[in-house]
Design a protein around this nucleic acid. Structure first.
Lengths: 204, 204
DNA sequence: AAAAGAAGATTGAATAGTCAGTCAACACAG
DNA sequence: CTGTGTTGACTGACTATTCAATCTTCTTTT
């Protein structure tokens, strides 16, 4: 199992080293098993040093969350030279490629556990709200483009983006919290939805 | 805020009293804030009594999970006298009525937090797998009926059920972990999907 | 029907362990 | 010699769990 986030292969300063260690501890123990001790086990320097670079556990975890959400946003497929229909297919790919967005399932696990905290932590909820809005708007924009380009039907971009957003969360969560591999079936049906309800099969 | 599960309004024995207290502690503190102390704060008898009725914290939480999953399964809309198209609409209702399935959002919060544990706990994952399979098969059966009745298109029941399952997880999670109220938009689009991709608009 | 007893329910106090966070001291670069 | 990064030992609060002792309820014996 590869616990390393490619982006953190070579952390540049101590703060990044600490974030990397936090990620590794997350992968191994999960949110409920995270302790300062275990984070410091994953990084070569001393435990007390964490308190020199961060105000405390809460501060560190919040910065870690911020970092993870940044990664999430960066993994969204950027505009290609091609049309919106190609672009949206990339998004669907990202949604179903090994969980969601990132090549290893560890990232998804961490995100699911972090997101669950948002149920009782207002600050976490605000962070996730921000990223959710970002991805929604991103998809919304693709759809708007597609309609203008004439490759999509005249759907409500906001509503369609909302469905995409929920599917993102749903697939990620489902994949790491259940052994049933509904995944391929779900993908097939979602592709059918995109073909039928979104793509404009023009017969000029 | 109403922390009580209707089913536990009047717990019959001490074990149920403890489960009720666990639910209340869950609502107030969330999974990561659950302690034996806080559970016992929510119930009138002594803390040590917990250990008389359960082997320990893990045992208690596992039984609590089992109880919550039972509730989840019981909230699935049963077959009505009407056709599958009416039946599936009830399922969609359940999916979008105040989170999912149960009338208060507390239940959803608890479920989301419990489910997140499944990312690192094999036993939790097995429990959720079982319930996920149950709901999937339930939806699959409705769809199969609908096809036979001629009210649904000739879709793949397994694939469609898979999408429903992921939507269930997605809506529940999204609602309690984000302030963005994507909810109504998502519902509108999902209804559109059902109308377009599932219902057979017969024009005999 | 009264005394004795068994079984389970309940309690308060005690124990052992873990956790986040602190602090005084050390290293060493400028 | 001053400031920044670093360390290991320490602490106090909190945690799960145990245990001996009591209380309650029902059963059995006389």
């Amino acid at each position: 199992m590869n616990d390393s986030l490619t982006f953190l292969e070579e952390p540049e300063d101590t703060r990044e080293e600490i974030l990397k260690a936090t990620y590794e501890a997350f992968c191994e123990h999960g949110y409920s098993g995270i302790t300062i001790q275990r984070i410091s086990d994953k990084f070569p320097k001393s435990k007390s040093l964490l308190y020199h670079h961060y105000d405390g556990k809460d501060d560190l975890l919040l910065e870690f969350l911020e970092f993870m959400l940044d990664q999430t946003e960066e993994q969204l497929p950027l505009q290609t030279g091609d049309g919106a229909d190609v672009h949206i297919e990339l998004v669907v790919d990202a949604m179903f490629s090994s969980g969601s967005m990132v090549d290893n399932v560890n990232f998804s696990r961490a995100m699911v556990e972090l997101r669950a905290q948002a149920a009782h932590d207002e600050q976490y909820r605000e962070y996730f709200s921000r990223t959710d809005r970002f991805t929604s708007k991103h998809v919304e924009h693709i759809i708007r483009s597609g309609i203008e380009q004439g490759v999509f039907q005249n759907v409500d971009p906001s509503e369609t983006a909302a469905l995409f957003q929920v599917m993102f969360v749903g697939t990620t969560t489902q994949q790491v919290t259940s052994n049933e591999s509904i995944f391929e079936d779900c993908r097939a049906e979602f592709e059918r939805y995109v073909e039928t309800c979104l793509i404009d099969s023009k017969e000029e």
